[in-house]
Write a protein that binds this DNA or RNA. Structure first.
Lengths: 237, 237
DNA sequence: ATAATATATTTGTACTACAAATAGTATAAA
DNA sequence: TTTATACTATTTGTAGTACAAATATATTAT
């Protein structure tokens, strides 16, 4: 099956990129299969090698293809998050995007409860305990690193590779948020503390240790109230 | 601040791409700011225009920059999922990747429960009812489209733009899974039916209508048992 | 002051050229 | 015959030149 061009697309490079992706899909190519070499592709598609290579360069970046001298172009399994990762630069993101990422994190972190308790074992519990105790020893207000260390461990326990990657990738956004929106976060924390509803990592840990899944689910929701409140305040306008 | 090159990277294009991304980050550029034009960049970085343009082409694809004749290169807010979307082609993905995506979907769909009930209103309920009734009228086994229609609506109700996009993007993987792994799914469904634990969309709907959040949470978990069982079977080996 | 025109700049595309890597082939040596 | 070595051809990676198309800016005309 040949290469088709959709002339709607913006530039030639866009068209060629789309055409090659389409070719891979229609021919159901799988990792290990190869694409025609650059010369063949230029004549086949009818563009300059320059344009072709820009399109190939994009696919190479995404990990869909791999090129090697005198071997040609080989399809490979892309890693799903490369593109996503490159794009997560907090300064480039609007507030609404950051809010959407917060929503996503809340959903994930509540949703991973089942997986967390499923994979939980005594080893993990003692690792969590170590983290909680070491932080408790220091201070009332946790540093960002401490905050992160605890939550990372939760993701790790789920054993889901994607959850772990995802968390790692969006982490800088939360660092940024902490630095930029703390004037929003602080009052919420004050209020929760006053109402005795502030859920600390220690509280979460105790529920985990007691294997109280439903209790944990309630608690993690409250623990993330800082973000929910922020979302609320920002979106009610 | 100038452009730095990490000579570790694979090709020159990789180095230039990294260098430009790094430049954007270090200088805290925001959407609307502009990059030096191509000529300036080539001399600054010390590569041919060809190589430079391959790197720029990648960033353009990700939506990080936008180029216009006689205006130069302008930073813009990328859409977070463009890269991810291009890479979701089921034939290119290994089974373990598909399993990871299933895990992610289960976590998301359980996790969105709170958001779902928060945004729930009578309108949504009647929309869901319409869907459920129309499907019930037809047959016992739902088509893929019907399956999708119901779940899409759940995502829509959450009002989270990212959840909706994410669901749309990974959907083809589940179509693919349905077609390829139905020999795994069918027995699970049979078993659940025999044990009277099969949760239909109607069951889910009734819980939603009754605003029984905790009941729903249990139920959606069971409803997704087809996937959990598949994951279990595949990973125990 | 406004409209029309001209000019300069910048990106988009094409083409040529050659270096570097490497798969495949031919040759030499055991 | 087998193995090691050298050679050849192919293919990607990089550089450079050229020009068309778009458009911002400057200039001129009304």
């Amino acid at each position: 099956m040949k290469f088709k061009i959709d002339y709607q697309s913006n530039t030639l490079v866009d068209q060629v990129e789309e055409s090659i992706l389409d070719y891979i899909k229609r021919n159901k190519l799988v990792p290990g299969d190869s694409l025609p070499n650059e010369m063949a592709l230029t004549t086949e598609i009818g563009v300059s090698r320059n344009v072709l290579r820009e399109a190939l360069s994009r696919l190479r970046m995404l990990g869909i293809i791999q090129s090697r001298t005198n071997r040609g172009i080989i399809i490979q399994e892309p890693s799903l998050f490369t593109g996503f990762e490159k794009v997560i630069e907090p300064h480039l993101l609007s507030e609404s995007t950051i809010i959407e990422l917060m929503k996503l994190r809340i959903v994930l972190e509540i949703g991973l409860t089942d997986l967390l308790f499923k994979h939980l074992n005594d080893n993990y519990i003692s690792e969590l305990e170590r983290i909680v105790l070491s932080h408790e020893a220091v201070n009332y207000n946790l540093t960002l690193e401490q905050e992160t260390e605890f939550h990372n461990k939760l993701y790790q326990i789920t054993g889901s590779e994607f959850l772990i990657s995802f968390q790692k990738i969006i982490h800088p956004v939360f660092v940024y948020a902490k630095n930029n929106y703390d004037n929003y976060f602080a009052p919420t924390n004050e209020r929760l503390r006053a109402e005795k509803k502030l859920i600390t990592h220690k509280d979460l840990f105790n529920l985990i240790k007691a294997r109280d899944m439903e209790g944990y689910r309630m608690a993690i929701k409250l623990h993330l109230a800082t973000y929910s409140d922020f979302i609320e305040k920002k979106t009610e306008k």
